[in-house]
Each structure stands twice: as C-alpha cells, then as structure tokens.
Design a protein around this nucleic acid. Sequence first.
DNA 1: TTTATAAAACCGACTAGACGGTTTGTAAAG
DNA 2: CTTTACAAACCGTCTAGTCGGTTTTATAAA
Lengths: 212, 212
Amino acid sequence: MDNASRSERSRNAALEAAIAIIARDGPGRLTLDAIARESGLSKGGVMHQFRTKEAVLKALLERQLGHFEEFSTRYMAKVSATSANPNLATQLATIREAASSPNSAALALVAAMVENPRLMALPREREAERMAAIRDEATDPDLAMLRWAGAMGLLLSSLFGMSPLGKEEHQRLFARLLDDSQWVGLTQPAPPRTVKSGTVAVAKAASRPKRA
Amino acid sequence: MDNASRSERSRNAALEAAIAIIARDGPGRLTLDAIARESGLSKGGVMHQFRTKEAVLKALLERQLGHFEEFSTRYMAKVSATSANPNLATQLATIREAASSPNSAALALVAAMVENPRLMALPREREAERMAAIRDEATDPDLAMLRWAGAMGLLLSSLFGMSPLGKEEHQRLFARLLDDSQWVGLTQPAPPRTVKSGTVAVAKAASRPKRA
DNA sequence: TTTATAAAACCGACTAGACGGTTTGTAAAG
DNA sequence: CTTTACAAACCGTCTAGTCGGTTTTATAAA
C-alpha cells in the first residue's frame, strides 16, 4: 500500500475510534491513549498523523460536518425544484438525519466544545450562511427560523439524553416540521385547511372547524 | 460567624467559581484545583464541603435547577389563571429566562454530562413530568411539543455558541413562541388573523415580496 | 532488476505536569 | 475540650506530548 493510502487509513481509523469512544464513554473519556487503543494504532502512530489532540478534534469536526454537508447537497438537489423553501426543507431534513444517525456530528460538536470552545467558530459560520438562505427564501422568516429551532431542539435535547420523547414521536414531529402546509405564516395566504399527505400519510383531519 | 453560615458561604463561593470557570474556559477545564483558585478557598476547604468532584457537580446541578424551578413556580402562579396552557407558557418563559441568564443552568448540564452522564437522569425525570403536563393541557399536543422544542433549540444552540442570531432576534422569536394567538393548532379554532401585540410590539409587515 | 539512500509511517518507552483525592496540621466555633 | 472549617503539603494515576529507534515505501543510480 502506498504512503498516501496508508496515512488515510490510519487517520480514518483514529477518527472512527474517537467517535466510538465519545458515543460509548462520553466526551470526557476521549484521550489520545484511548484513541490509540481503540484504533489499533500505537500512540506514536496517532501522534504522527495528528500533531496535537486539538488537531484530532478539528479533523473530526470537519469530517462529520462534511458528511452532513454532502447529505445536505444531495437533498437540496432533490427538492430545490419542487419546494418553495428548499433551504429550510434541506436543513430540517439534515437535522433529522443527524438526530437519527448514531455517528452524529453532534457528538463531535460536544467533544470539541468541551476541549476547546474556539473550535465552534467553524460550524457557527457555516450555520450563519444557511440561516441567511433560509431567511431569504421565506415569506415569514421568523416562522422559518422557529421551525429550524424546533428541529434543533429535538436534536440537541435527545443528544443530551434530555428528551422524554419516543422514537416514533420524534419522527412524527420532524415530519410535521417538514410539512409546509402546516405552517402558515403571517403574510402568507392560508391554503385550504385539508391535511396534505406528506412523507407520512396521516388521516387526522376528521372534522376540522373552519376559521372563525 | 457561626459554622453553618461559614459552610454555606464556602459552598456558595465554590459553586459560583465553578460556574464562572465553565462559562469562561469550557466544561473541560472545570477541575477541583481551578475551583479552589477561583473561589479563594484552599483545595482542602473545597474538599471539606464536597467530598468528591461528582458531589460538586450534583450540588451545582441542583442549585441551578432549583433556581429555575423557583422562577417557574412564580411564573406559573401568575399565568395559571389567564392562560389556556399555563404549563407550556411557563416552560417557554423559563427556557427564555435560562437563555438570557449568563449563569445558566444549561452550563451545569453540559458539565455534568461530560463528567458523568448518569447525572442527567435527575433533570430528565423532571422534564418528563413537565412534558406530560404540557401535553395534557394542549388542544394540539404535537404543536405544543414543537413550540417547546423551538425554545429548546434557541437555548441550546446559543449555548453551544452555534446560534447566528442576535439578541433582539432571540427575544422576538421567544415572544412569538409565547404568543398563543400565533400558533393555531389542528383542533383549535383559529382566532382572527390580526397580529396581537405581545410583550414586544413589532410592526414588521412592511412590504414582503409575495410568492413567485 | 538490483542496490543504495532518503523519506515517510509507525512503534512504545518516557517525561513533565495536571488531576482527584488523602493526610496532617491549625485556628475558630461550640 | 471537642468538633467543625479550613489550609497546605503530599500521593498515585492519568494525560498530552516527546523521542530514539524500526519498518515500510519512494526515488534513483548502477
């Protein structure tokens, strides 16, 4: 195997190990020795690929962020033609994805924050760009932000082990966040209030009272 | 000064120091020596008041939780008569309070999670009770949960330093979350669609471009 | 193809310091 | 005089990072 591949394999193994450790033992247990043990590499090997622990965290953060960015672009390509607010839809779907993925980017975020809060600058900047895009396409920007915040709340609270919600509830709530017809903004004319069948087909309309 | 007061003063100083450290340097930098340095106590003094580091975290968690529970009860007493969903209103207001308070309970939560994820059991249980109460009083339970999640998202994302939102935006979004008239549930008749002036009076209609 | 040399990847023992916690000593309160 | 609150030195362990040495790959001259 050539050097480039060998390096990449090792770096990959180290980062995978790091995620496994964080997920299993918590961010506080992430040590260089633990990474070496878990990945099968020696400490020296790990230190050859990453000069400091901070470098590990940074690489981990970028890798996970990249993963979800990829998901994001794919999703965006799919819905950009059909959705009135593709940026919001994409963000909501990506957050849902992060919430249901065990190798969550969120774990890396927590670890980074614990070790070095400065590292949060990178994800914050990217987030800011996305928020701007969501705003620009929205008829009711604040409502769009609140839908985004709702998704974030579901993700982070479950990440913190603070969410008393079951898995199916989680899914249902995300589905509702994604369903544009359920979120009627202030300056947007209300569509006829029949439940449109979205990703989840639910017939919960029964007898809806009309607007007073 | 008598012994009881002396002890309490020391315990207090230690916990204040702990919060300051977490807020300034991140949860990863919270050590017993740091607490001793920051509080002016000696390490021995700290260890006399708290037998272990976990005891410090636990006390910190309980103190912060207690603080917001007090806020919560006061708020609840105020709105329980007038609001149709006092539990939700109280939770939203409490989360807003936590978000605007620098000595946030949330910081303690993060620290606890890093050090010992088991400590999260206590806040999770209390949270579950509140969620149940919010559900029970709601005409549209899922919408209520999503409003709660939205508040949580605003709180946690800003806590993580991930929120690109300004302070006034934050306030506006919380105000909207709290304004029942803006959240028309599926089984709840919609009130006339005029913007009700809430805690913040905003005339933001101006001229927003309509859908293409 | 073989051989010489350099460079990169990797190993594991080691170090300095930080950490949680203990022990010993002392002053104040009861 | 006993107990409680606190101080300060101390202990064993763990951690991030270093270092000298070994193996593997890359380059290239013979």
